[in-house]
């Protein structure tokens, strides 16, 4: 099977950039994203949600703007009737229950970490990222530099899902914004 070529391939190199001292922002690119969308109908949402939760060994579906995860994968509730499934293939969904769609190549995922990750994102996203408003395992879709993106607060850091076509353009903005905090790219 041919290798997947990421949208950012050739457009960045690992290293330490910008302000000296401890790097405030760490960026890394998640390779070979495995992402499926599963959508339900209004009446079938509870059942489909439960099915997805079960598929990763969790008890209940994620509520609006929330994520659940385990070692098997993660389920993100990104729209009222739509879920994203990460790192595993979706269970079979009958048309009466809903539908699934492979979106693994449609997004580039950048992981953002570091002591100033939240402050950094505050330069880019009109989102309330304060702890009470956006705790761990919250998901939000918003506009970053005019591009619709999805942000997942995961384990102290953030996963930023960018439409693949805009990945380089957004990466350039991330890079330029991160320099003032001290940037480390791994």
């Amino acid at each position: 099977m041919a290798n997947r070529l990421s949208a950012l391939a050739g457009h960045y190199s690992p290293g330490r950039f910008g302000a000296e001292g401890q790097a405030g922002v760490h960026l890394s690119v998640v390779a070979d994203l495995r992402l499926h969308q599963v959508a339900a109908w209004p009446d079938s949402l509870p059942a489909v949600g439960q099915l997805l939760a079960n598929s990763i060994g969790q008890a209940a579906k994620p509520g609006p703007g929330c994520a659940i995860s385990s070692e098997q994968g993660a389920v993100l509730r990104i729209e009222p009737l739509k879920f994203w499934l990460l790192n595993l293939d979706p269970p079979t969904i009958e048309a009466e229950q809903g539908c699934s769609l492979d979106l693994s190549h449609s997004r580039t995922c950048v992981h953002i970490d570091g002591p100033q990750a939240q402050e950094f994102l505050g330069r880019l996203l009109p989102l309330d990222l304060r702890a009470a408003a956006f705790p761990d395992n919250r998901v939000a879709s918003s506009a970053l530099h005019h591009v619709g993106v999805t942000l997942w607060h995961r384990g102290g850091g953030y996963d930023l899902f960018i439409p693949r076509g805009f990945a380089v353009s957004i990466w350039e903005v991330l890079h330029a914004t991160a320099l003032q905090f001290g940037l480390e790219i791994s």
């Binding site: 109908w41 209004p42 009446d43 949402l45 509520g63 609006p64 009222p80 009737l81």
Partner: peptide, 18 residues
């Protein structure tokens, strides 16, 4: 409020549960 009444039902039910 959601324009689609089905979306409205779903979100309302979830809000009640939480």
């Amino acid at each position: 409020w959601p324009a689609h009444r089905g979306y409205g039902r779903v979100l309302h039910a979830e809000k009640e549960n939480t």
